[in-house]
């Protein structure tokens, strides 16, 4: 990606919030996990983890058994959930973080990174997940938000966070709050990749537009003001011509072709939620999506991947247009 040598601005922001956190620690709030050697949780270490996941697939799982299938199939990581997004949508009620016991069991049975979701704005769920040893925390709109106005201040954590976004200003606000990775929101649990496509295109169009006007300070300042983020961050994106963190696709990916499409649109990797374990051919589908994501630019390989799955076994999916406005998950936490 090459932006990692240019994360100076993020590091300055991080230092500021980290110093604040250390101050509160010194006043008796012992929150920071121990660090046996070196400096833990630096910006490079936090932005570096998602960078290692590039070209890979992170799969939603609800049990140790599913996590083992995911690892065997070549997942680059798993996301432990209480219910798959499709079931969250069907069951209604309040969706919260997964059982800590299940997360711990998964962590001790597989060797790849383990992620888990916390509710938007739920600082304590995030503290619990960090303490438990989760490698990446997803502050996710799939769970029921607890704070309609604020997200978690992610700078004070030593583990990286991923946040969803539908467009560039939203992504920049999350990065300003300390997100080390961005994903499209898509519309989770629908098996319909249309919204993820929309979000990825909106984000990339804006980045290209910013890059084309990178010398126009007045324009960049206006953009920053409207997006409610700093000019320095907007300038950084304009200069890099991409986000200063890894950007994955998520929300509705159900087939190898969906995954390859998102890679072609410029994703760095994909999250697959209900798409795998709500299908009738989970093991083969997981392997096929891994292959299509890595070799998306080789039509022969994508064809081979698509041949590995059976369309009749794919999750049926929901047309996003049939969802009522209050059923949309993507409008949560903007």
């Amino acid at each position: 990606m090459g932006w990692l040598s240019r994360t100076g601005y993020l590091e300055a922001l991080s230092r500021f919030f980290y110093d604040l956190a250390e101050l509160s620690d010194s006043m008796g709030l012992k929150r920071q996990p121990p660090c046996p050697i070196g400096s833990c949780g630096t910006v490079k270490v936090k932005v570096g983890l998602p960078s290692m996941l590039v070209g890979g697939v992170i799969m939603d799982v609800t049990s140790v058994e599913q996590a083992e299938i995911a690892e065997d199939a070549g997942a680059v990581g798993v996301m432990v959930l209480d219910k798959l997004p499709y079931d969250v949508r069907r069951s209604g009620g309040v969706a919260r973080m997964a059982d800590v016991k299940v997360i711990e069991e998964v962590m001790s049975s597989i060797t790849i990174p383990v992620s888990a979701k916390c509710r938007i704005g739920h600082y304590m769920e995030a503290v619990i997940l960090e303490r438990a040893g989760v490698d990446l925390i997803d502050e996710s709109e799939v769970l029921t938000p607890v704070d309609e106005a604020h997200h978690i201040n992610k700078w004070v954590f030593k583990v990286p966070f991923v946040n969803g976004a539908r467009e560039l200003p939203e992504a920049l606000r999350r990065i300003s709050e300390g997100a080390s990775m961005i994903r499209t929101k898509g519309e989770a649990g629908t098996g319909n990749v249309a919204e993820a496509v929309r979000h990825m295109k909106a984000l990339n169009n804006d980045i290209r537009f910013l890059a084309s006007r990178r010398g126009d300070e007045e324009f960049l300042r206006d953009y920053a003001r409207n997006a409610k983020v700093s000019y320095e961050l907007v300038k950084l994106v304009a200069d890099l011509g991409r986000l200063p963190v890894v950007n994955f696709a998520a929300g509705g990916i159900a087939t190898p072709a969906d995954a390859a499409l998102m890679m072609w649109l410029g994703s760095d990797g994909v999250f697959v939620g209900s798409g795998i374990f709500k299908s009738g051919d989970a093991r083969a589908r997981a392997e096929a999506i891994v292959l299509a994501t890595s070799k998306w630019d080789d039509p022969e390989a994508v064809l081979e991947a698509q041949r590995m799955v059976v369309e009749k076994s794919a999750m049926t999916g929901i047309d996003v247009k049939t969802l009522k406005p209050e059923e949309l998950l993507q409008v949560r936490g903007v």
Binding site: P33, G38, S39, T42, V45, V134, V159
Partner: peptide, 27 residues
């Protein structure tokens, strides 16, 4: 070997015959 992501770290290393470099250990 060093633990999970929260124990991932940065430190300076002496490389025999070449001098010191900054290294990031991530999982």
């Amino acid at each position: 070997a060093f633990g999970r992501q929260r124990e991932s770290f940065e430190m300076e290393l002496e490389v025999g015959g070449y001098g010191r470099i900054r290294a990031a250990f991530i999982r």
